[in-house]
Nucleic acid binder design. Structure first.
Lengths: 364, 364
DNA sequence: CCTCGTCGCTAAACTGATTTAGCAAAGCAT
DNA sequence: ATGCTTTGCTAAATCAGTTTAGCGACGAGG
């Protein structure tokens, strides 16, 4: 692999010039006074030899490696990681960079290893990513270089990229309101721990706020809010059973994530309630299951790919250092309808949804 | 980041020895005649200075980078990728290596970019991975070095790592047989394309063979085999509706993967059939949804993590070049029971499953 | 004709490691 | 005392680039 590759010296020799000249031409150095003809000859020689610079040699001198480290607590192994990595990968490729991936798994020793591996390889920058949107502590050792936090914030003053969970909360609430739901909107997935401890989650509080504020703006309060120890299907299931035992039946359920919603579907199915005719369900994340459920689950999508992309852009381009809240678009499927017994607001065919602006999930 | 790191020269100076001596000591070179005291001094100096070698400089000389490229068609962005990457990451870390990740997305230009990036960085080896278990074509440019195929085979003579789909097929069939299912076992997910074209899938045919052979060994033939254009929940759903319209009702359904099984659950739920009391369901993959379904889906798990690990081991250790079929263990949950109207074979508590050897999913 | 500046280019230093070739001193045999 | 080997260590080359310093030729101005 890579045996007998042409070196810069080979190119220079073939072009009849010095290594210096060849280097300058190939690097497009300004202000050099090399003739147009010299340029031609170098380019031709490089082309003919299929010359590719040796990155090790180059970075020995320049301390640049065209490599970005992607360090995550555990993200690389999660189903959510895909988008994050893919976006970063794409953006990196566009900038002729490559991604070095490591995982700390929340283990101090592993983190130490990752840091050293990164430092040893003199990466040009570090993307420090978290699986769950949260606040984390960045190891001081890497603070010397450029670092971008992905799906995370930190007490350190560092650029970060987060999904706009609060905006998504508003979008979700407004979507239900637009359909005519008002006083019978239930909320599943309240969780004190997640809401209070930013080291665990930033999403819980933000989503809750977005929902509450949007409802309040319409003069509405949630009918019930059910707490869940975790955001897994089983908890959505039991929460729904609890909910259905309550005297007042909800017309719509907002779930704090899609896995909860899956549990809601299961519970509703068991008691013979139909989505969305009897109850609407709406949620967050756009987990793959959202598309697989019947009926398809309407949900505010985590923009993982754009987030990964953005992180690389912040790291490498640096220019765009505005707010890095990435909007979460609402993926409209079939789980939301007007409340039962309501005449849906008239909507002539082909005129689009009644609250089109809401569906765009604008960042705030 | 990594400013003013101590160099080998610094260590040598502090130890009062030459760079040569320091280098040899730190690399644990045999046959050097450096005194025990010299060793001590070098180690002490390196320790005191927090010396870490500059990898660029080292690999310029040695052409080794302690870096492995993980090239995939699209695997890095899939939910299935997690385990593959995590296993590789772990095994790489144990061997003091790091992973460089690229994705070709099946695009020739991207693949070209990935190859060049890899060659430029002089990685020590390449893991070429596929999302779906299949046969693929390895770009000749990387054949000069060491390459291991992960979740894929190739016409090129290269070591590969595959899940033991055929063994899993047998395990699955035998599990149903052990429960007393015989002549009413239906199969959902036949697919001519997948079964015939190894470039699309190697799993379909292997699983089918495993199932058929195990059933045949018990003198049983599948009751019905339903074809599906894809292996998605909706296809499992419609396949089940079709199945239920047939005169003979199945006692158990084997699905070619978990997403199909999800569709089966949906269809069965709609018509009011209970799993496993009315019908048993069993499947392949151990997709996250398998655990979320109610009842939990019994399924032969794709051993992604072990596969990723194995790939690195083959690449770096090389010694173990035996068959790299990684067994797929059966994840026993609650979706399989004895057929309705059957007295379950007596099984005293605490004695383990009736066919314990089957449950271990031995590779074959 | 001399000096100075610009043009077009190059030699050599430098990056930080590994590795080859070999040197000085000590030990040993003759 | 002399020659040979072994011991313990080092100078210098090398990897493949980038970068600094500067050289020779030429033209213009005085």
């Amino acid at each position: 692999m890579g045996r007998n590759r042409a070196t810069l010296a080979d190119v220079a020799r073939r072009a009849g010039l010095s290594k210096t000249a060849a280097s300058m031409v190939l690097n497009g150095r300004e202000g050099t006074r090399l003739s147009a003809e010299a340029h031609q000859r170098v380019f031709a020689a490089a082309e003919e030899l299929g010359y590719r610079p040796n990155i090790a040699a180059r970075s020995l001198r320049t301390r640049k490696t065209a490599t970005i480290a992607f360090v995550s607590d555990i993200v690389a192994t999660t189903r959510f990681a895909g988008g994050l990595i893919r976006g970063a990968l794409d953006a990196a490729r566009e900038r002729d960079h490559v991604l070095l991936i490591t995982e700390t798994q929340g283990d101090a020793a592993f983190e130490q290893y990752a840091i050293e591996a990164i430092l040893d390889r003199q990466v040009d920058g570090v993307i420090y990513a978290a699986m769950a949107t949260r606040r984390l502590t960045v190891p001081p050792a890497i603070l010397g270089g450029s670092v971008v936090l992905l799906n995370a914030t930190s007490s350190t003053r560092l650029p970060w990229v987060l999904p706009d969970d609060q905006g998504a909360g508003a979008t979700v609430a407004e979507t239900l309101l637009a359909q005519g739901h008002r006083d019978r909107i239930a909320l599943i997935g309240r969780n004190r721990q997640k809401e209070r401890d930013p080291e665990i989650s930033l999403a819980a509080e933000a989503r809750l706020h977005g929902i509450r504020d949007a409802l309040a703006a319409a003069g509405v309060r949630p009918l019930t809010e059910i707490f869940c120890p975790e955001w897994l299907p089983e908890h959505g299931y039991t929460a729904t059973r609890t909910l259905l035992d309550l005297p007042a039946a909800p017309s719509a359920i907002i779930c704090m994530n899609d896995r909860l919603a899956f549990g809601v579907y299961q519970a509703l199915g068991e008691v013979g309630l139909t989505i969305p005719d009897d109850i609407s369900v709406i949620s967050f994340d756009d987990d793959p299951i959202a598309a697989w459920l019947r009926p398809g689950l309407t949900t505010a999508a985590l923009p993982h790919e754009q987030m990964g992309r953005k992180a690389v852009e912040l790291l490498l381009d640096g220019d765009d250092d505005g707010p890095s809240l990435v909007p979460m678009l609402l993926r409209r499927r079939q789980s939301v309808a007007a409340p039962a017994g309501t005449v849906p607001s008239p909507r002539p065919p082909g005129e689009g949804p009644p609250a089109a602006d809401v569906s765009s999930g604008v960042a705030r």
